[in-house]
Amino acid sequence: MYVSDIDMLSPRSLQECLYLLENEKASFRLLAGGTDAVVRMKEGKWQHDCWLNLKNIDELKFIAIEKDEIHIGPLTTHQEIISSPLLRDHADVLVQACREVGAAQMQNMGTIGGNIGTASPAGDTIPALFVLGAIIELTSLTGKRHICAEDFFIGPGKTVAFPNEIITKISFKIRGKHDLGIFQKLGPRKAQSISIVNVAISLSMKEGTRECTGGRIAFGSVGPVVLRAKKCEAMLALGELSPDMIANISRVAWKEVMPISDIRASASYRRDMASALLERGLYRLMKRWADDERKPF
């Protein structure tokens, strides 16, 4: 079968798209930004019958705030996330992660729904969604399901979504007044690289102090799926986030990850880097907290 034999359907509405998924006999693949699809086609993979091109489904492109929740449509591009003032205020960690996705061209084409659907263990936006506590909405012709980001991914390229479902919304709570987040990525170079290790951190701080009341930490590229670092998280609220405390928390990180060796890095380096990125990220967050609050610690 040739790549040029693959058909493409471009539904104009979500309803039409869901109908096709439910009733057509052909094997479909959803096409969002196409940044992975192009690569896979070139490799001769993904030899399905038909692309379902989502580009025209405008109802899946939105960034909104409703009560205490932020809602993002799955066809929102990385670039749209980066330039959203709302998300800069409420999801700095996601904005930073989107900045690290590929090059400008990738950010212009690639979508957050596509990044989730592709389910790469190195996907940059996924750790950010973990620490934001994001909920992913799946819709089929017969109903909706809401899955916590952490439960959504089951392996490299594998999610809990059924073939008749598509991602229709990503939502998370607006951030608290003293919450802040950071995304740290180590790649073989600064620009346009696939993560060797990445980490997303979000902290809730106690005003006027270096005390943390709680937080989330998620590592990417260190296992078959993105991982929450719960031991490290538990230590966040043990006391002031002093340099010593930060070093102690980070020292535990290597126990939380289960990386492999590949062409980009060895497992042992990845393990060390989980600690290093967490430590560096916490230092940078505390510096920002101090600068933002203009409080001497």
Binding site: R189, K190, S193
Partner: peptide, 11 residues
């Protein structure tokens, strides 16, 4: 070029 890393303008 996914894994053959050359400097970009950022480097």
């Amino acid at each position: 070029f996914t894994n053959y890393i050359i400097p970009t303008i950022r480097e």
